[in-house]
Design a protein around this nucleic acid. Structure first.
Lengths: 243, 243
DNA sequence: CAGTGGTCTAGACCACAGG
DNA sequence: CTGTGGTCTAGACCACTGC
């Protein structure tokens, strides 16, 4: 078994970490789709020829990374990017007085363009590589409060201009392009509304907005989406947990 | 053993969770101070009459919660709130072009006052309970870029007005008042600079600032500090990881 | 009922720190 | 060298799910 693992993954690691990486790689390659069940612990243990405890450690790590969901008595499933999960993991903007909710979206335009310097760096693009820029506005509780500019490498998302884009993009990426968002890093700043923001949000130029510059990565930590959101925060706040 | 645990902690939980809670309670009560080493795994196992694996699971949970730090070959230690750790866990405001650094502080005033409605709710104060309000400014790389208002229940921090307050408050709380900050929740908004902000930061009234409203809790999840920071973000950003 | 994941145990061996 | 935590194993029993 150690030999088999070494063949699949040369570098040294504890066994349970190696098992984790093997399973992660398999999942990233489409071995099991979102929502599908993995084989049982004992089947996996037999398959990979390691003990149950080692398999459990690996599955536990993947569950902690939110790649898998485990349910006693049922099985282990590949995480589904349904709205509830997106809301929990990625939607940090919350109404001050109510529960978190999924924002509605209105697409403004979709264009293939050359990337700017920031896109180039954040998405790790090859020289000359083109990107798709998706502009939209979003509303929470009926009030338009976000302008959004989404940048995607055209290589990963061919012909996305022709598609009908839903509200929940991460689920859409997964279903139509096999691109699964695993996590993201956001940089926040306070900025003044531009003329463009002003028109869409109905506030004066210079109004303080919360700008969120997000880079989302897939299961293998490759950056696949950049998203700049500019949000009105009079009745909303961004929630951040430090633990 | 089960009976002994039941005596210390009546409600049902898996054994390793119970062990975790027992150790957490002991630490919160000053059993071991910040930086001190815990007994070895086998000593703890013998003491609590559970298997090594169970002790390891409990210690692993506490390490994941950053209450403990484990070092192979040395031992298990209560987490120390040194600058490096504070920087890593609580200092999310980062220069755009440089590494994270610890901000310098200038104390403006320290006063005992009645709490406002927000303090009352966020800190879970008893009716009529007084608070200490600490106002200061902070600078990163020589430039004053943050105004800060810190609110503390006077019950937990008696005579703090008379103390000389250092830059690293969380370490100070731990050493002088036995209050150990474990984690925090922050609510972020974009706001316009007030006349007060304007004076301290040297920017026009209305300049967009990032307002961070933090409530920090101790090991037992009791809120112990509220802190409202208003930050210039021209050359800084707030880093948030979604995982 | 059978099959799943959840918990607990006991014991072995390894890697590392420090005298 | 001893003692620490880190890893791996094997096997037992429990709790939950769904037929």
């Amino acid at each position: 078994m150690r030999d088999m693992i070494s063949a699949e993954l040369p570098n040294f690691m504890p066994l349970h970490r190696q098992v984790k990486e093997i399973l992660l790689r398999r999942i990233a390659n489409g071995w099991k789709g979102a929502g599908e069940a993995l084989p049982s612990e004992s089947d996996l243990a037999a398959d990979l020829e390691v003990s149950l405890g080692t398999i459990r450690a690996a599955l536990g790590l993947l569950a902690a990374d939110k790649v898998l969901v485990r349910q006693q008595g049922k099985g282990t499933y590949v995480t589904l990017h349904d709205e509830a999960r997106i809301l929990f993991q990625f939607q940090r903007l919350t109404p001050d007085a109510q529960a978190r909710q999924f924002p509605e979206s209105q697409v403004l335009s979709v264009n293939t363009e050359p990337p700017d310097a920031g896109d180039q760096a954040q998405l790790g693009l090859a020289v000359g590589e083109q990107v798709v820029k998706l502009r939209r506005t979003r509303s929470l509780g009926g009030l338009t409060c976000i302008t959004e500019l989404i940048t995607l490498p055209v290589v990963l998302f061919p012909k996305i201009e022709a598609q009908d884009l839903p509200n929940n993009l991460y689920e859409f990426y997964s279903v139509h392009y096999g691109v699964r968002i695993a996590k993201a890093v956001e940089q926040l700043k306070a900025v003044g509304a531009t003329a463009n923001d002003s028109g869409h949000l109905g506030v004066p130029v210079g109004t303080p907005l919360l700008q969120i510059d997000r880079v989302a990565v897939d299961l293998c930590d490759r950056p696949v989406e950049r998203r700049i959101s500019r949000c009105l925060t009079d009745d909303y706040h961004y929630l951040s947990k430090l633990e």
